[in-house]
């Protein structure tokens, strides 16, 4: 990112402030949503959606992923494949593979 001109950075700063405001608003929204009368499935879905939006904002703008080199995008895509596998491992434990019971 060494090729940025001063004006570039100034417009970046505006974006950072917008992202900051969005993150603050989404934090309030996610807390408010938790007080709504939702089923636990709906609540989990909504909370994870909001967290994912917030996380993407941080990654895209603060971490500059939106204008980052392809190599890093590739590393992260592979990471997320493994991450999702990791998330699904626990559910395997709840299938009765050999019909013990």
């Amino acid at each position: 990112m060494s090729d940025h001109s001063m004006d570039d950075i100034k417009s970046h700063v505006k974006v950072y402030m917008l992202v900051f405001a969005s993150l603050a608003v989404l934090t309030v929204v996610t807390v408010a949503a938790s007080y709504m009368d939702l089923s636990s499935g709906e609540a989990i879905f909504l909370a994870l959606i909001i967290a994912t939006i917030k996380g993407s904002l941080v990654a895209s703008y603060f971490m500059h992923l939106i204008s980052e080199k392809a190599l890093i995008t590739w590393i992260l895509m592979i990471t997320f494949v493994f991450f999702f596998i990791l998330m699904f491992i626990p559910t395997i434990a709840f299938f009765d593979w050999v019909n013990i019971s």
Partner: peptide, 11 residues
């Protein structure tokens, strides 16, 4: 933390 907060405190 953005993920920890809802997962631990709100759900």
């Amino acid at each position: 933390w953005i993920f920890l907060f809802p997962v631990l405190y709100l759900l």
